[in-house]
Structure formats: structure tokens, C-alpha cells
Amino acid sequence: MTLFADPVLVLVMLVNFVVLGTSRMRATIRASAAQGAILAVLPLLVQQEVRWHILVMAAGAATLKGLVIPGLLQKAMRDVQIRHEVEPYVGFLASLFIGAGGSGMAILFSSKLPLAPEHAGGLLVPAALSTVFTGFLILVTRRKAISQVVGYLVLENGIFIFGLLLIDAMPFMVEIGVLLDLFVGIFVMGIIMNRIREEFASLDTEHLAELRD
């Protein structure tokens, strides 16, 4: 079954680099949306038998990650009229290199971990770890609040991929809980972003640097 999953995972990892390397906000949001939508296909590919709760989960993931959340982000972006991530703490080229290095480390690290026979040799673990790493990298290197939310989304995507290792074992309730939390989290973040805009008339978290010792 990993036969079909691996090309998709390669695609997911490529999207990571798109998110890392682009400055246009619309493109990064679209890329993360595409990543979310691609991921929604994976549950169908990695499971041994088709079960209804997995179909529900896939549909839920596709709607949330591919449509709802990117929609919220696009709206926030239009409201504040920003198009580019300017002057991230680490340049786009540099973050591409760091991201590539991180992905390489992820592949090396996962080859050291013991794996169940059905997962051995597949790309699930490396893809999961490198996506988590990419999300984390975006979170810590970008200034704009929207970019940070995108980073959080990518991080969550990585965890979602890892969750697929356990698709036969994870109870339904937890899966739904994960999606719901993600949605509510983005929703609350959206509200706060809205306030940041009203307060500072931009979505630059640089303004949020008043509190320090």
C-alpha cells in the first residue's frame, strides 16, 4: 500500500519547500491549503481495508485544511491588505537550505528507528518529521502573524501524517478531536489577528515586542 502513498508524500515534502521559499502570502496560504487537501487523500491509501470512519475523517480533513482554514486566512489577508512576507528573521534562500538539511536529518533519523514491517522503507516517518520541522522553522523565522499561523498549520500537517501510522489503532474520537481543536485554534487565532490589526493596523508581530525584561 505504501506503493501508492509514497508519491503523495513526496509531493507533500515538495510543498514544504514551496512554503519555505515564497514570499507571496497568497502563495503560501494556497500551498498549505494544497498540502492539507493532498494529505486528506492519504488515509485512503494507507489503510488495509476501507472503513466508514476513515472516509469521514478524510472528508473532514479535506474540508477543514483545504477549504475552511485557508478561507479564513485569505479573508484575514484581504482585510489587512498584506501581500508579502517582508524581511523574515531568516532569508528565504537560507530557510530553504535549512529546510533541506532538516529533511535530510529526518530521513537519516527515521532510518534508525525500528518500524513495523508494513511501514518499513516507506516515506511516512521521514515525511512526517520533515513537515513538523518545516512548520517549526516557519513559526520561528517569520514576522507576520498570518505566516506564523501557516507555520502552525504545516506543523499540524506533519503530525497528521505521523498519525497515519496508527490509523488502524487510533480511536475515532481522538481523530475528530484533533481536527476540531485545529479548527477552533485557528478560529481563535483569527479573532486575535483581527484585534492585532485593529490595534496596530498591520499584522506584523514585530509590533508585539513591548513585553520584555
Binding site: L139, Y152, L166, G185, H207, A209, E210, L211
Partner: peptide, 27 residues
């Protein structure tokens, strides 16, 4: 206030990342 907004944003952002990593640990 703008200060409490900053505090709420940091709390939510860092908290959510922490929680996400805890989920990875659970998995």
C-alpha cells in the same frame, strides 16, 4: 490593551505549538 493582546497572542501561539508537540509525543 495592546499589551494584553500581545500577551494573548504569544500565549496562544507558543501554547499551541507546545500542545502540538505533545500530540506528537502521544503518537
Amino acid at each position: 490593551s495592546s499589551r494584553s493582546l500581545e500577551a494573548a497572542w504569544k500565549y496562544l501561539m507558543i501554547g499551541s505549538v507546545g500542545i502540538a508537540i505533545a500530540l506528537l509525543g502521544s503518537l
